[in-house]
Nucleic acid binder design. Structure first.
Lengths: 166, 166
DNA sequence: TATTGTTATACTCTATAACTATA
DNA sequence: TATAGTTATAGAGTATAACAATA
């Protein structure tokens, strides 16, 4: 990521005292607030894993859970569940396989498909990742009561169900 | 986007009757549900604009609103408000400027900065975009009461405020 | 013929490091 | 020296088109 280091050391950026800008209607828009929250949660996820010395994205976590709970599924089935193209999935699986977290096995019943499953190290790693996700979840919901968190999840699902996703 | 067209026509993909997979704990995770909702809303935004023959992303809309409400602001100030690096902003502005939606003017007070502002066509286009966003917002909130929408926005802001974003 | 996985290609978003012009 | 904007570079995520192997 970025140009190879050569001379100057990274300098702490203080910058100007970031005056708050006028955001107009944006804070009243559900889509905008959803995107901001999602972005902040994503950043928190990254910090949580970084701090623990682990490397994983929210998407990779979801993928690993799906494979763990549906051992032997095909790449097509996984891509469909993730809502991405099968070609998009290839390099993602390449990376996870290179990390020895999962394997592609030849299906004995259908020579065209790969049966995906976690490796033993992958299963072990997922347990650790899940603990980190729990800690992360606890933090992002820290300002919400249990009831509020449930309400939020319910409302988010209502929103999702109401969209015309392709 | 994609390889240059050559032979085969795009075929309707029917695929296998997508059996629902076991998602384990995922539906109980706030981060996961937030990501799913955000993704669906993003897709709905794209369809809304595509259908209207307009081209715009949620991020570009937010940027245009910020420039409209804070005419003359610098690229640094805008990047800070958007939470992105100043280098990331450059190609985004290039595109919007190429579409004649905004301009970079030299600041008379500080020769290093650009004063950003919408062009007259940009201002007009933003009015149209805003109408489309309203229609989109109406749809994604269709299954929620007005009170529920307000609750949702409030909870999302609570979540955002609770994260340790960098 | 149709499906699965892969590859080639391309575009966007994101960042870091370094360069240029200014302050 | 420090800041603003730009460029070079690089990786992740996303997609479409086409290809090879298999059904």
């Amino acid at each position: 990521m970025g140009r190879p280091p050569t001379k100057r050391p990274a300098k702490a950026l203080v910058t100007t005292p970031a005056q708050t800008l006028d955001r107009g209607v944006l804070p009243t828009l559900l889509g905008y607030m959803l995107r901001r929250a999602q972005s902040a949660v994503f950043a928190d996820f990254a910090i949580t894993f970084q701090t623990a010395g682990a490397t994983l994205t929210p998407g990779e976590f979801g993928l690993l859970v799906l494979v763990a709970r549906n051992a032997g599924l095909s790449q097509m089935a996984l891509a469909r569940a993730l809502g991405i193209d099968r070609s998009t999935l290839v390099p993602i699986l390449d990376r996870l396989q290179a990390r020895d977290l999962l394997v592609r096995r030849r299906s004995p019943t259908d020579g065209r498909t790969h049966a995906l499953e976690l490796t033993p190290p992958g299963t072990k790693a997922l347990a650790r990742f899940t603990a980190l996700v729990r800690a992360h979840e606890k933090r992002i919901a820290a300002r919400l009561s249990t009831a509020e968190t449930q309400t939020l999840i319910g409302l988010l699902e209502k929103v999702r169900a109401g969209t015309r996703s392709i």
